[in-house]
Design a binder for these strands. Structure first.
Lengths: 249, 249
DNA sequence: CCGGAACCTTGACCCAAATCAAATGCCACA
DNA sequence: TGTGGCATTTGATTTGGGTCAAGGTTCCGG
């Protein structure tokens, strides 16, 4: 097994792709889809592997098919902040940009559906369906970033943890077009350190707050990477915002 | 003078518009520009006026021509975080969305170049130039939001203040296609409270850090709303990140 | 079954920024 | 020229989360 990104021969047809109707290809049909299908290739990364370093040349863009990746930014003295969390169906890379602006790391085992950048950019010009879907996804990501700004700027450590769990639960549920409620389980494919980098905390504070939420019955831990939430509404209350999570979209 | 948004009769031709080559209309020429010009109308707001409330119907989109506006999000208990800062040439509103997601407030006197939403959406479909410019602007805004995440998550109060000043200086300079250097003046069309909401601080902390930067000669104050920076590189050093601000774009 | 590494938890202490509380400056306007 | 209403500054005190330090788990390879 190579240490580098593994170019993976086994790729699925788009028809049975789990992110077929949520990714950048969502609105494509017939010829458009065939063209994308013809140029796609898969890559797999192990948890912890770096996909690209900030400043490196990046000549592909991709959709996350499975797993999770984090975009990360750093100050010179090493302080680290996650600035993007990519879940299945999210888009990676910026058309028109040669160099990666952020370091991308697989936080769990990761499968990407990649397209070489240049041909993809051409497709973007010829094919308004793809371009408009990408605009829509970018606007959604901007909205998510804005919720994240509120989280980082104004929420307490406990609210931050609860918010992260709510976000993961909602994203997980959205993939199967449902809305989380009642007793639910959340996969948590992040180390405590990655959670801390996401939330602007230290890993010690993350650990302490997780313990506190557990002690108070808001969550139960099933191993380190799986969380049981007895009452989803209780968790939402703890997260500080009581928005209902908006339309299913 | 009405208390509400002032629909303003005096509007300039696009040719002499100060944001002609930076706004969503940047790549438009001839017919495209004429079409935009035919449907545009100006609105003016006084400092402090609300442009739209979160949740209200919003049936126009707009470019900021002059002045500054803040997008703001709130938790139920009143904690407030600014999640967007709109400067001249920035785009306001989301095509395809009926309701405003954020409250928009003029932080200084503000001039908007508005388009009714429905006709603008139609234009977006028919006219790839505008759509691709909007995608580009949205991607830039996402990058800015990601720098902002780093600021909120990991920077000290002093670094936050310095970073805000650097951002304003760069944006001001970019409008005239220059890069800030040496001794510069920065307009600061924000109250201390608005700065605090931007930076995830209290207004007292903002005031204290401004005083400290002044005491140490990093900045001089010329009234409350104008800052003189004797050495721009010194200010950038104080901001924590030493990126050079990227290409002029 | 043991040793080690990676990850996580817990405790004690500290500090940067929040909170609470006055002052002070600065207009606009009577 | 005073006066009320802001925005801002400054001071005293508290506190949430950071830092430093020590153990505990889990899991893998030998």
């Amino acid at each position: 097994m190579p240490h580098d990104a593994a170019l993976c021969a086994t790729q699925q047809p788009c028809e049975i792709c789990p992110i077929r109707y949520r990714a950048v290809c969502a609105h494509c049909e017939g010829d458009e889809l065939a063209e994308l299908e013809g140029m796609k290739f898969y890559r797999r990364y192990e948890a912890g592997q770096v996909v690209v370093w900030a400043g490196d040349r990046m000549d592909f863009v991709a959709s996350v098919v499975a797993g999770m990746a984090g975009l990360t930014q750093q100050l010179e003295d090493g302080r680290t902040q996650m600035v993007g969390l990519l879940l299945p169906s999210d888009f990676l890379g910026r058309p028109g940009r040669e160099m990666a602006t952020y370091t991308v790391t697989a936080t769990s085992n990761l499968v990407l559906c990649c397209f070489r950048r240049k041909p993809f950019e051409k497709l973007l010009i010829d094919n308004p369906r793809i371009a408009s879907r990408l605009l829509e996804m970018t606007l959604d990501e901007l909205d998510a970033a804005r919720d994240w700004l509120l989280l980082l700027g104004r929420k307490s450590a406990r609210e931050k943890i609860a918010s992260l769990l709510v976000i993961l639960a909602r994203r997980e549920a959205a993939l199967i077009k449902r809305r989380p409620e009642g007793r639910i389980a959340i996969e948590l494919p992040l180390t405590r350190e990655a959670m801390a980098d996401y939330l602007g905390l230290t890993l010690e504070t993350v650990s302490r707050q997780m313990s506190a939420l557990k002690r108070e019955g808001v969550i139960e831990l099933d191993g380190k990477r799986r969380v049981i939430v007895p009452s989803f509404v209780r968790l939402v209350t703890e997260s500080g915002d009581d928005s209902d999570g908006g339309p299913l979209s």
